[in-house]
Nucleic acid binder design. Structure first.
Length: 372
DNA sequence: AACGCGGGGAT
DNA sequence: ATCCCAGCGTT
């Protein structure tokens, strides 16, 4: 086996911009003693620093499943209020299975990645039909549910059913990448490090540690109880791990929006396509481009009953694109020769209609007592 | 393997 | 301003 010092025998490694990587046998996770020390210290840290998150109390398989759907690409702190609202409105699998997509989306509004809401409802329907209205404990049955991938299946296995499964999320990946000096750690590495019989606790410990100490960009190594056993730190590249894929530029899009209201003051809304950005949500009539408001009205088969009034433009930035929104306040009617898909919704009925981000903001602004 | 998919908090 | 998050389904 190559000793640690022999890596310098290949000085060209890493010269071409790539990060020099230790051979697998050089990584510390090959040592049982190192693994035991890491486990001991991390579980000790966790005992003092466990986050009291709402979805960690009153754990049931259903609550765990709902939380894991919400937690995809979403910070634990952001999920809290949505989780509480959701399980109050849909307390169990039968309640969720019986709900309409729009009811579920309305509770989900503001949380983002709206496809998750529909997949979760579909999963509930399948559990109702095939698993007696309960979350299945069998890993294969879990993995077969709509919206359940390798991470959620493992997380439910561990948190809901107490199994020794490694839930390898972004926090865990980052912590393991640094501890083991591995550019892209996988679930197999996570599984190797998991202490037998401590699955649920261990997963939580890695997540909370990654959220509080081994944070992105600027890890708090000075305050880290593992810094002296951390291979990434020893190699001087903890902050560079895990390896990040290059970011692509974000397309800029201009959208012209009508804050359209009829003679009764109801809002004119249209439904977005079921798939894609803000899929299935409702929004104010809009069209891409810096258009004349009359043109936007024409495309939605609306007739302006007064001159549209320009409102303050604003930017709405998504992860993968940015909108510059040019809104107009417009009085309108759908009594033209063409059939209009616009649905008129009174202010009191808006709570049941899931609105996409910019439209939610505009509707809220229009209802605020002080208009600009 | 690459890509689309939200919103917000931290830096 | 950029980065990143208790990922998944599609192509």
């Amino acid at each position: 086996m190559a000793g640690r010092g022999e890596r310098s025998a290949t000085p060209e490694a890493g010269a071409a911009g790539g990060v020099a990587q230790p051979a697998a046998s050089d990584r510390p996770d090959a040592s049982a003693a190192w693994r035991a020390e890491v486990q001991r210290r991390l579980l000790g840290w966790f005992q003092q620093h466990r986050r009291p998150l709402p979805f960690r109390s009153g754990r049931t398989p259903y609550r765990v499943l709902v939380a894991e759907f919400m937690l995809q690409q979403t910070r634990a702190e952001a999920v809290g209020p949505f989780f509480e609202r959701f399980v109050r409105r849909f307390p169990d699998v039968p309640a969720l299975a019986a709900a309409a997509d729009d009811e579920v989306l309305a509770v989900w509004q503001g949380l983002g990645y709206y496809r998750r809401a529909r997949l979760l409802r579909a999963a509930a329907a399948e559990m109702q039909a095939r698993h007696g209205g309960a979350v299945p404990s069998d890993p294969a049955a879990l993995r077969a549910l709509p919206g359940v991938g390798p991470y959620i299946a493992a997380a439910v296995g561990a948190f809901a059913f107490g199994r020794d499964e490694a839930a390898c999320d972004a926090n865990v990946r980052r912590v393991l990448a640094r501890l083991c000096d591995a550019p892209r750690p996988d679930a197999a590495l996570a599984a190797r490090l998991l202490p037998v019989g401590r699955g649920p606790e261990w997963n939580e410990a890695l997540m909370d540690f990654g959220s509080a100490v081994c944070i992105p960009r600027t890890p708090r190594c000075a305050a880290c109880p593992l810094s002296d056993v951390c291979a990434g730190r020893r190699a001087g590249r903890a902050a560079l791990l895990p390896e990040r894929p290059p970011r692509r530029p974000r397309p800029e899009v201009v959208v012209t929006v009508l804050v359209a209201r009829d003679a009764q003051g109801r809002f004119g809304l249209v439904r977005r396509p079921a798939t894609g950005l803000l899929g299935g949500l409702w929004e104010l009539p809009a069209a891409e481009g810096a258009l004349d408001p009359g043109e936007v009205a024409r495309r939605h088969a609306l007739r302006l009953t007064a001159a549209a009034v320009p409102l303050a433009a604003f930017r709405h930035v998504f992860t993968h694109r940015a909108w510059t929104v040019r809104p107009f306040a417009a009085s309108a009617a759908a009594d033209g020769p063409e059939p209009s898909a616009v649905r008129w919704v009174a202010a009191e009925a808006l709570a049941g209609v899931p609105l996409g981000g910019p439209s939610a903001r505009l509707v809220a602004g229009a209802l605020r007592p002080s208009a600009k």
